[in-house]
């Protein structure tokens, strides 16, 4: 699952550590999320979407086969 976390974080001028602190996760989790190596849980996706002021669908790009 792709996401726009990295580009939004850079647009908001937020560091990985600041985002990690805001979402109560480690910086490694943010790095893995940005690289697409780890898929966030619904709770973390909701927190991240709230942080950037958007919906989960806007932040995370669901591909067709992932919706099934």
């Amino acid at each position: 699952m792709k996401n726009k976390i990295q580009q939004l974080r850079k647009a908001h001028k937020v560091t990985q550590q600041e985002l990690a602190d805001a979402l109560c996760v480690t910086r490694q989790t943010i790095i893995s999320l940005e690289n697409g190596r780890y898929n966030a849980s619904l709770t973390l996706a909701h927190k991240a979407a709230q942080f950037f002021g958007m919906t989960i669908e806007e932040l995370f790009i669901f591909e067709n086969d992932e919706n099934i």
Binding site: A20, C24, V25, T26, Q28, T29, Y38
Partner: peptide, 11 residues
Amino acid sequence: YVEKTDERNDA
């Protein structure tokens, strides 16, 4: 606390 509750660490 963050390390222990981090969902990636848990996974």
